[in-house]
Every structure is written in structure tokens, then in C-alpha cells.
Write a protein that binds this DNA or RNA. Structure first.
Lengths: 191, 191, 191, 191
DNA sequence: CATGAATGAGACTTCATTCAT
DNA sequence: CATGAATGAAGTCTCATTCAT
């Protein structure tokens, strides 16, 4: 299912990501992309059949990285997931402004579905970890699952979005740590 | 500063909002808009000088509604703000999928600035309420302000986004209540 | 043939002239014109049936002024004509950048004809004065008539054009006098 | 600075020149141009980034030709310049009705500047030749420089404009010769 | 692998004009 | 006298894509 990308294809996806991060999805046009790469429009069609194919490869990036999480459990897994997200964002800041920005692809139904699938799977995995954490007595169990998901992922999303919109004006790792610390305190089971 | 819109102008903004909500920002073209209104492209230019002007009027809607919050304080004000947001979303569902979707306007620097200003002001107001709530002993004071903001607004944003993306598949009021209840419990000062 | 213009019509023509002088013929649009006058587009159609009618009235201005030359003869008439032109230009500088700019109306065949007619008549009158001046021994007679016309009118046109393009940067009267003096010297019959 | 044009670009500029010559600047639209070339509007944008770029290339034509004047001096250089102009006009009659028609570009501030620069340089060169001619005793020295410029270039401009407007109804070379002869006589130093 | 040339659809915008009020 | 609302044609430009070389 997942196609291996050639070197050139990866270069193209990199450039595409850069364009989107810079000026949004509308900035991702075949001409801009080819100019960024120093080739002709037509040249891109040798590497990808479609523009859709490029965007799909781009979205695939998120997934590729997201899958490499080690098999942790409970609160440890939750913390790892949040850390992983922010580290990913720090590693490829262009991704930072794109990930969590599902609206960007609104209308691109092909991409929308891919993203929706990703989100669903992620959601499922997280819920599993929540249950584990509750069973292990790591976090309190009196909060509805969906609400819990929002309480944990919502702040993370907002944090990353703020960081992206401010063009990295604050220390993401530090703020992420504040977030994790506070969550730990708030969610821990009271004696 | 804020321009009063004519009846027709409001009709146009309504239609624009509908278009965006349906298929995203890319769906908001002058042609689509005029077709939705049953007139020619050119007709719109009688009412607005620019497409930008239309989008600005549209963004102004958020602001207009956001300003009408009663002068509450502390946790009450925070709760009211969250309730107000969700009620706004319920009242004009088209707005729902647009609000909190700053990325939609990424690249549209004119609009970006307006939104940025709105966010800044909102942020400031919320921080004031947080401080009041802490002083009043309504919520605990050991969480950094910015983190507190993310912990409260992040979940709300995610909730509204989920509701929008699912096309209203769940009861927004109910879930919002769960969120508020949980927040209250989590943030309350422990004896 | 020549229609008397109402007060409002004259105001409109004035504004039209100003627009053309400012940014060229392409700047003369009904909307710009109406905006300059502080009314709606539609309002202009009460005063003129057509845009063509406005332009015709505008061109008529040149003619109107050009006709009022006193019945002089010979070199005196020639000098008077040149003086008259420059004075006209000084009196209504907007006209300055339009008059002698037949190209501006190229394509506007209706106007082109009017202008062509004006030029023809002017040409004829000037030739008559040339002949008188030669017969009177005021200027030498060994220059072909058409060449003489170019030698006298060409410099004047260039002078006015330079003045217009420089936005009145030099003293038109002074330079015109230099021109007349030099012409007198050059063309006078040698002993 | 001066960009080399491709074959296709030159074809486009040729067509553009033809369109302007035929019906004036307003006739130079992308659609007309592409139709004249038998292609789509969009095709032109492969060769030129802008419509402005096309016009600039077009204006560059004047300059290109104007620069190739041999290094002559004094009256010989002046005569050569006038001859060159008329020959240029005869060689490319389309240029004829455009050259000396600065008004055509009024409002096109980009082009206006290019033209203004060209005029300035031309003016400077001519003044130099005037001085040389005076020093060499070829022409009289009692006429102000600027006036001299107008006396010589003005008639030439008018001649070319008349020829262009009459669609080549008379023998340009013959009339130009009359002009030169007369000028020589008038301006020569009297014994 | 890439370029040169083109296309058709559609984007935003301006223009002159009309008509009912 | 004027406005409010609209129209149809035209203008400039961008976009994704194709095809021959």
C-alpha cells in the first residue's frame, strides 16, 4: 500500500511541505513547486502522475512518522505520544504548521479521507492507553473517555498551533513540559 | 472603524459563510458566491469593492459576536465564554467549521492580521478571568498562566472542531457540559 | 451643430479633463468620473446619453477655444496663434497634456474624425497666414509650404509636450518667447 | 540589463507592435495578441511573465535600434540621427505610429519611466552634437540650446506623426530631405 | 529526466450601460 | 437629479495538465 518514494520524489515532497508551511495550502501549486526545485512544471509529472499524488505522499509523511512509536503503555505511552509529537514538530518545523491543520485540506476529499483514517487510528490507540492508565491507577477514572481525550490532546494541539503561528517564538520543549507536569498533577488520583 | 453592513451585504456574507462551511475556503470564489445568490459576478462588486472586503466582513462577524459577552468575572466568566462559543457555533453552524480554523486564512495576510488581533484580545481577556478565579480561590494557582490557557481553551477548540468535522454527529451541549464539569473538578483547589 | 452644455455637463467635462490629464485616457471611466464628482455611475447618464458624448463634448472644448482667434494676418497671426496655444495651455493645464496628443484617441474613430477635421482646418488657416507673411516680405519664401508648417508648428508642439510631461517644471511663456524670437531671426528675409 | 529575447518572444512583440499600430494601445490586449498569434491567452504567459513585460520588450525595441548609431559628430551626426529615425520608421512602419507617441503609455508608469530615460539620453546626445556643430561653425550659436533642440526635433516629430496618421500617404524620405535642407539653410552661419 | 509550448477552465476585476424607483 | 441593483462582455492572470522532443 505504502509506496516507497525515490530520492527525487522525497525532494519534491520536502519542497511541497516548505511551500505549504510558508504560505499555506494555496501556495502549493505545480508552478511554485517546480520553481522551488529549479525545474519546469512538466518535469514534476515525470515523478508524480498527479498533484493529488504529491499531496498524498506529503500526508503519508505524517503517518510514517506517527507509526514509529515504541510499544509503551498507560501514562508512559501518553506522555511519549505527546513528546513525540512535539519532537516531530521541532525536527521538521514545516510540518508543524501543517499537522493538526485538517482544515487546510478541507475540500480535497482524497486527502480528507487519509487524514480522517489517521485520526481515527490515533484516537483509538490513545483511548487504549487511557484505559490502561486508569486501570493502573495512574490517572483518575471519573472522566468520560471522549472528554479525557479532549482534555489531553486539545492543549497539545493548541500548544503546537501557537508555536507554529508565532514562528517558533517560544521554547516548545519547555512549554510542553509545563503542560505534561500540569496534566499529571491534575489527572492523578487523589488520596 | 467597524463598518455597518447593508442588508444585501449581510446576505452576501451569509452566503459566503455557507460556501466556506460546505467545502472549505477554496470554495469561496466570486463565481460560486454570485451563483449562490443568483446574480452575476459583477453584481457583487457593487456591494463590495474587493473579495478581500467580503472576507473581512465575514471575519468581522466573529468579532461582533465575541464582543457581546456580559461583564462577568472569574470562573463564571470563563464558563460563560466557553458556553458562548459553543452556543455561537450551534446558532450558526456555518461559522462552526470556520471559527478556530485560522489555517484557512493562512496566506491571506490581510485577514491573518485581523484574526491575530482578535486572538490577542481574547487571550488577554481570558487571562484576566483566570487571575480573578485564582484570587477568588475558585481554581488552583500552581499552573503557569499560558499552560492554564491551553488546558482550558485547547479542549474547547478540539471539541468544536470534532463537532464540525463530524457534521454535528454528537450533542455539542452535552459534551461541552462534560468538559466543563471535568475542568471544574480537575482545577478546583483541593482541601 | 455645437450643443450648448448645461452647468452640470460642464462640470462633468472638467472632471473628465482632469482625469485624462492625470493618468491618461484609460483613466477616463464612468466610474472614476462619477466618483470624482461624488455621484453614482448612473447619475452621469442623466446628463449625457453616452460616454462618447462626454468625450465629444471634451474635444469640443479645444475647438471652442481655438476658434476665438482674432482676424490677424501674416506673421502677426502666426505669432498670435502660437501665443494663443501656450496661453490656452497655461490657462487650463489639464488641457495641456491632452491637446496635441492625437494618439490618445486612436481607436476612438468618432473622436478621431473630429480631431482630424480640427487639424485640417487649422492647417489650412496657418498656410494662409504663411502665404501672407511671405508676400509681405516678413519671412523668406524659399521653403516648401508643408516644410514651413512643420518647422513652425513642430517646435511648438514639442515645447508644449515637454512642458506637460515635466508637469510645468519650466516657464512656458519664457521658452515660447525664445522660440518665437529664434524663429523670427531664422525665417526673416536676409538682406 | 537588456534581456535577449527568444524567437517566440520576438514574434509576440512583433504582433503586439502591429496591434498597437493598427488601432492604438487599447487594442493591445492579451486576448487580441494571442488571437493574432493563433494561440490561447494562457500560452503567452509561458513566454512573458506579465503584460507589462511584453510592453517593456516592445519599448526596448526603440532603444535597441536607437543605440546603433555610428559615432558621428556635429551637424553630420544630427543629420544622421534624423535620417536614422525616418529610416527606422520606414523599415518598421508599425513602429512609426508608436514612436514619438509617449502619450500612448501615459498611466503605464513602468513604461513611462523607461521612455523617460530613453528621451533623456537622446536629449543629452543631441545637445552634445549641437555644441560640436556650433563650435565647428556649422550652425549659428545665438540660439538657446533647448530652443535649438525644439527647432530641430520638433519638426521631425511632426513629420513622422503626419506620415503615420496619413498611413504613409506621402514620400517620407523626400519630405525629410526638404526638412534637412531647410534646416541647413536656416541654421547656417551667415557671412 | 527534463524542457518548450500549449491548452481549457476558471479565478478576480473593470467597464459601459440599463432600469426601476 | 439621483441612487441601488444588476448585467454581459471583456480584461489580466493562474492553475493543472498534456504532449512531442
Amino acid at each position: 500500500m505504502k509506496k516507497e518514494l525515490t530520492t527525487r520524489q522525497n525532494e519534491i515532497v520536502d519542497a511541497a511541505l516548505r511551500l505549504i508551511a510558508e504560505k499555506g495550502m494555496r501556495n502549493l501549486t505545480i508552478r511554485h513547486l517546480s520553481q522551488a526545485l529549479g525545474v519546469t512544471d512538466a518535469a514534476l509529472y515525470y515523478h508524480f502522475h498527479d498533484k493529488v499524488e504529491i499531496v498524498q505522499a506529503l500526508v503519508g509523511r505524517f503517518e510514517a512518522d506517527a507509526d514509529n512509536i515504541e510499544p509503551l503503555h498507560g501514562w508512559t505511552a501518553i506522555e511519549a505520544a505527546l513528546v513525540h509529537r512535539t519532537e516531530l514538530v521541532l525536527a521538521t518545523p514545516d510540518l508543524a504548521r501543517v499537522v493538526f491543520a485538517e482544515e487546510l485540506f478541507q475540500g480535497d476529499s482524497e486527502v480528507e479521507q487519509i487524514l480522517f483514517g489517521m485520526m481515527q487510528r490515533h484516537h483509538k490507540v490513545m483511548l487504549k492507553h487511557f484505559r490502561e492508565a486508569i486501570e493502573a491507577g495512574e490517572i483518575r477514572g471519573d472522566i468520560p473517555m471522549d472528554t479525557l481525550f479532549r482534555l489531553i490532546l486539545g492543549p497539545l494541539r493548541l500548544l503546537i498551533k501557537q508555536w507554529g503561528m508565532s514562528h517558533g517564538a517560544f521554547d516548545l520543549r519547555e512549554e510542553r513540559q509545563h503542560l505534561l507536569d500540569s496534566m499529571k498533577i491534575l489527572l492523578s488520583v487523589k488520596p
